[in-house]
């Protein structure tokens, strides 16, 4: 993400936008990039207002709820059967392995 001082507006290049789209595996046609950029900037600059607040000494919030230490209980198992879950796969071989597009050269 481009670094800016609090008074500046965030700018973003079309290449940065393409990179971000790639990381999210989104296919964005070139003619939609400008529109996406203005939406994206509107969002970023909206949140940028937080930079104007004095946050020195404020602990960054890791979670919005006042919860901590939620632990897995003994003996709890998911009711879904593995076979049932495997039905979500496009293709499964005779040894129960999920077949996916090749990921090595």
């Amino acid at each position: 993400m481009p670094e800016t001082r609090s008074s500046e507006r965030i700018e973003i290049s079309l290449q940065q936008l393409r990179d971000i789209a790639f990381l999210s595996r989104l296919e964005v046609p070139d003619e939609s990039l400008e529109e996406l950029r203005s939406d994206f900037l509107a969002l970023l600059n909206h949140f940028k207002q937080i930079d104007e607040l004095p946050t020195d000494g404020v602990e960054p919030m890791a979670h919005p709820l006042e919860l901590s230490n939620v632990f897995l209980q003994e003996g709890v198992r998911c009711p879904a059967e593995p076979d049932e879950l495997l039905q979500n796969a496009l293709e499964v071989d005779s040894e129960r392995r999920v077949i996916v597009p090749r990921v090595v050269e």
Binding site: C78, A80, P82, L85, L86, R96, R97
Partner: peptide, 12 residues
């Protein structure tokens, strides 16, 4: 264990 036996919605 045989492939895809110890799986559940969370780890999938």
């Amino acid at each position: 264990v045989p492939p895809n036996t110890n799986i559940c919605p969370t780890c999938l």
